[in-house]
């Protein structure tokens, strides 16, 4: 935890200065909005990372029954969903300026929206059970089960159909990003920075949850 905070601040400061100042490839339609890549894509990376941690802790909880794992899993899912909503919003603004509309029938958009629905269902499931250990067990089972359905929804299905997003419609993932070395220079630090930010927020919120329980 000690290294996370300074590293996160450093990387995000770098992202927000270099992201606005560095040169980006001049592409038609995209123009300067290509800088949204530094904000929009890391949100999804962070969401997937946090949800992966959440389902991992859910699995730990059902296998050993330590209530701390359940708390962690709930906490990671909660923060992950916030990042998902942010990813959706930044994507919508970007889409307004490049594709001309806030929402299109794009498989990746639908997949991520449904992924958020899964986790809203998870929260409702949690709130409808009073008993603590029962709540942890049932919602953990659902968490592991639904996360394994989220992966094909976001990563496999869009690749089989045509999508406005790069890397879909049978194309290999990262080459089509048109990511030249200039973009990568900011993109990878941005992804790491936002993941660290997600971990940091979840750490603070976990402390709050623990205090609330006492």
């Amino acid at each position: 935890m000690r290294f996370i905070k300074p590293l996160c601040i450093l990387l995000l400061t770098y992202t927000f200065t270099a992201g606005y100042l560095f040169e980006v490839p001049a592409l038609p339609i995209l123009n300067e909005t290509i800088r949204a890549l530094y904000l929009h894509v890391p949100m999804w990376f962070t969401m997937i990372f946090l949800l992966l941690l959440s389902s991992f802790h859910s699995y730990r909880y059902v296998s050993n029954g330590n209530i701390l794992h359940d708390m962690k899993s709930y906490n990671f899912a909660h923060i992950g969903v916030y990042f998902g909503i942010l990813g959706l919003l930044t994507g919508m603004v970007w889409a307004r300026y490049t594709w001309g509309t806030f929402w299109t029938n794009d498989p990746k958009l639908n997949g991520s929206a449904i992924g958020l629905l899964i986790y809203f269902g998870y929260f409702i499931l949690r709130s409808s059970i009073d008993d603590e250990s029962k709540r942890g067990k049932i919602s953990s089972v659902y968490n592991v089960f639904s996360f394994s359905m989220l992966i094909p929804l976001i990563f496999i299905l869009p690749r089989l159909t045509d999508s406005l997003h790069p890397g879909n419609g049978g194309n290999p993932g990262f080459n089509v990003y048109d990511m030249n070395s200039q973009l990568r220079l900011v993109f990878y630090p941005a992804v790491t920075g936002f993941i660290l930010l997600g971990l940091w927020i979840s750490d603070i919120r976990l402390k709050m949850l623990k205090l609330n329980q006492k």
């Binding site: 899964i118 269902g121 409702i124 499931l125 409808s128 059970i129 089972v141 089960f145 359905m149």
Partner: peptide, 30 residues
């Protein structure tokens, strides 16, 4: 499995559709 989950919850008829729809969607689309 979803019905087994919602069996354990009190107001279960609503829960099964909330939990079931998003999970079943990839299969239904294919």
């Amino acid at each position: 499995l979803i019905s087994a989950i919602s069996y354990q919850v009190e107001n279960n008829s609503l829960i099964i559709s909330i939990l079931g729809f998003p999970v079943i969607l990839p299969i239904l689309l294919i």
